[in-house]
């Protein structure tokens, strides 16, 4: 496993020498520096790193929400100009609309994309059922727990069957049990659908548990310091986290954190 894994020939998403610099009161700040990353179609990619390493910025650039100041990003060979087609996003906060029912919140995705709501009603109900929210379709977000709300926001992102799912620390605000639960559900969803997922997290075990490949980022400036494959069988039970093989991967990330002075070994 060398530092930059073997080049990907069939990349779905290609990030080429991407950099992002923005002005501030104390002079220009380099948020991202020379990021090179190829994402294979159907791959589950975890991006892990300490806060301030630019992982969220990278995600926003891939989502077309922010522009990069050097390099380029292509999706299916086409240069990225704004939010790409067939993308779903999940943020750390579920950002459900309080005045809409859970079903209407999920259908918001179709409304925003300009699709007729009624066409997606059945699919929305199916998704909610698959994520354990059957019976809560007509409840309001404030009647649900944090974990259930985040499940609903994942359903919203999946409604229009996106090819690419971008997740920015989606389980960061949840308690450990709920987080484990959602990790398993997300892994199952990914295995069933084969979507390309870019998953940002600062949790080492979450990154390894979910990913085909882990991208390790560092800060000052934000850059990629390591990329490695996670060669663990699927489906993965939660107990896999106690195995030696898992420990080796986790240790590799922990070692990087230690080098950054974030964790002390």
């Amino acid at each position: 496993m060398n530092m930059m894994a073997s080049p990907v020939t069939d990349a779905y998403l290609r990030i080429n020498g991407a950099g992002k610099t923005y002005p501030s009161k104390h002079g220009p700040v380099v948020a991202l520096s020379d990021v090179n990353l190829d994402v294979r179609p159907g791959e589950f990619l975890s991006v892990v790193g300490p806060s301030g390493c630019g992982k969220s910025t990278l995600l926003k650039c891939v989502a077309g929400l922010e522009g990069i100041t050097s390099g380029n990003i292509t999706v299916s060979g086409k240069p990225l100009m704004g939010p790409p087609d067939g993308m779903g996003v999940v943020f750390q906060r579920d950002v459900l609309l309080d005045w809409r029912t859970i079903l209407d919140n999920v259908l918001l995705q179709a409304e925003f994309l300009g699709h007729p709501r009624e066409q997606y009603r059945d699919r929305a109900l199916q998704l909610l059922e698959r994520f354990g929210l059957k019976g809560y379709e007509n409840r309001h977000p404030w009647e649900l727990s944090g974990g259930m709300r985040q499940r609903a926001s994942i359903c919203r992102a999946l409604l229009c069957d996106p090819e690419l799912l971008l997740m920015d620390e989606p389980f960061g605000a949840l308690d450990a049990m709920t987080r484990d639960d959602l990790n398993v559900e997300l892994a199952r969803m990914w295995q069933e659908t084969g979507k390309t997922v870019i998953f940002i997290t600062h949790s080492i075990s979450e990154a390894v548990f979910l990913a085909d490949r882990v991208v390790m980022m560092s800060r000052g400036p934000g850059r990629i310091v390591d990329i490695f494959d996670v060669d663990l069988p699927r489906p993965r039970p939660l107990a896999i986290r106690e195995t030696d093989a898992f420990g080796v991967y986790a240790q590799r990330i922990r070692h990087h954190f230690a080098e950054l002075g974030v964790l002390h070994e």
Binding site: V89, V95, F112
Partner: peptide, 20 residues
């Protein structure tokens, strides 16, 4: 992040005003 979500799904200006 709600506005980011709307932007990422290419919500119209109208939708952003009247639905959010």
């Amino acid at each position: 992040d709600m506005l980011n979500l709307a932007k990422a799904t290419r919500a119209s200006k109208f939708d952003i005003i009247y639905k959010i």
